[in-house]
Amino acid sequence: MPSSVMPTSRIDGRQSPAAVSTAGLRKSYGDKTVLNGIDLHIPAGSVFALLGPNGAGKTTTVHILSTLIAADSGRAQVAGHDVATSPDGVRAAIGVTGQFSAVDGLITGEENMLLMADLHHLSKREARRTTAELLERFDLVEAANKPASSYSGGMKRRLDIAMTLVGDPRIIFLDEPTTGLDPRSRHNMWQIIRELVSDGVTVLLTTQYLQEADELADRIAVLHEGRIAAEGTADELKRLIPGGHVRLRFCDPSTYRCAADAIREVTRDDEALSLQIPSDGSQRELRSILDRLDRAGIEADELTVHTPDLDDVFFALTGSNQPNQPNQPNQPKEAVR
């Protein structure tokens, strides 16, 4: 399948099919199955989001891919190296920012950076240059000489990522990079991640936030109970479920009834006096609805257009015990709304 092969010339100087690929990854703790067969294919240079609620297996996946723990079965390759047989090859290519801050709180931000530089065997000059550059880029120059334990949550996260970038990893794992951050820090973090991508690195991030996956990721895998419930671009995932509709609300019951008669294919909500009309929200469909209302001389008190967002997808996919097969949009499925 050479047509789908992405060149990853900067990794090891040779071609490899994907920055990250896994097949049938399984892991359980005792009788609790955490991962139940994970297949991933992440092209180099892309951003891939693992989306799922707590306990879905996101962190376990990242831990296996970053050589922190071993899978029970299945194979995983990162940067062309097998995580089980060549962990050091994997480690040399990756940068990991875990869910919990991985900075040394007892020493200063700058010392943390220099520690990383030493562990990457940079020369003294390179170490100073890289440290200064990254501290500047992550807006930590002022705090550089304060102990990292005194940093705010957002600053710690920035230092964490800055430390991860020492040594220029080509594949970066970010485990819930914005959990616990305030909105401003979250947006800063998004900006940082976008900049990483523009440098050509591959990013695998996990998140509980649909908006975050939508904003950042080229492809998204929805993880649910240790399986991939669905995978695709944000748009592909949205198309998986029939959630788009136009909603009309009325104050007067008689107008409501007239409207329900005038536009036939509707879902009625008699208590709320609202009508739900399936629609993709296109101009043409909206016009036809409005035309029909006009002909009947009805004016709705409120009209809203709902396009399915990732929340709908998420709840639809994770609300049931039988997840959709990936990339099969033709399975009609009741959206939980």
Binding site: T67, G98, A102, D104, T164
Partner: peptide
Amino acid sequence: TEGIMARFRTMAI
């Protein structure tokens, strides 16, 4: 118990 250990374990050191 700190995250820094996880970082060390994922580095080629």
